[in-house]
Write a protein that binds this DNA or RNA. Structure first.
Lengths: 135, 135
DNA sequence: GTTACTGCAAAGCTTTTGCATCCCT
DNA sequence: AGGGATGCAAAAGCTTTGCAGTAAC
């Protein structure tokens, strides 16, 4: 139950600033390349360590949508997602639905949060024959 | 738009039988070890190839919940999930909610399906101090 | 007889880890 | 001064791919 120590190093401040208000749901690699220019010594290992720490502190949440890589969302409040199954673009939707399970449906689980996900094709991917981007 | 050729080999029939009605949402490795005993020559590569083919044919769907590995669901119809954030157990819930987005909320997407996910702790993980299982 | 499938090994990616050095507090 | 953080390289997982042999159709 001990509080976590968290040093505000230049790298971490840069990562936090990069994520703040960022709605692109970036992966670790995207955070890394997004900061690499202004921060040439930054290492991917540090990005991974920092993302993990921020997640433990509840500042960001991991999103499981792209099975090839983890993505992170700085919006930790309840909201929903609109996901393109092709390019893996993720768009935030305001919390509009509040699904609830009754006692029986809960199967003994302690529910912590719920989320609605809409899967489909974004405008760009609807009018595109070419193979999906790697994103 | 050409039809996919699909040969019904013994390996594939075994994998399909293993998945049929299976609600454990297995990973490729779980399918592999689940059949390895009765099918000693089966290879993991074949399991991966077959799962990919079954997915292309719409017989199974990939579930993105466990960020460390892909998992598959033979229930392709609309339904929801109850997910333990600790042991990554996934329980199917009947389709009870039918969230819909209006024109404006759709942001130009063509919606194909939606899904509600409930995250929480399963009965076993509520009463357990030890670190989460690898599942 | 074709051609898709199998299985092995190797390669590819993302993520994690060991460790010496560094530097925030 | 002390302990957490950094960054490099190596390792670990999961998944994909190349290829020769095999078998379904």
């Amino acid at each position: 139950m001990r509080e976590e120590k968290f040093r505000r190093t230049p790298q971490r401040l840069a990562i936090m600033k990069f994520l703040e208000g960022n709605s692109s749901h970036p992966s670790a690699e995207e955070v890394y390349f997004g900061l690499k220019r202004q921060f040439p010594t930054l290492s991917l290992a540090t990005v991974y360590h920092t993302l993990e720490a921020l997640e433990r502190m509840g500042k960001i949440v991991e999103i499981n949508v792209d099975s090839t890589k983890k993505r992170y969302d700085p919006a930790v409040g309840a909201h929903h997602h609109l996901i393109c199954i092709r390019c893996k673009k993720i768009i935030d939707l305001p919390e509009k639905f509040h699904p609830v399970l009754n006692e029986e449906e809960r199967k003994g689980f302690r529910i912590l949060r719920s989320q609605v996900e809409f899967y489909g094709l974004c405008p760009q991917c609807q009018s595109r024959r070419s193979p999906a981007q790697k994103n």
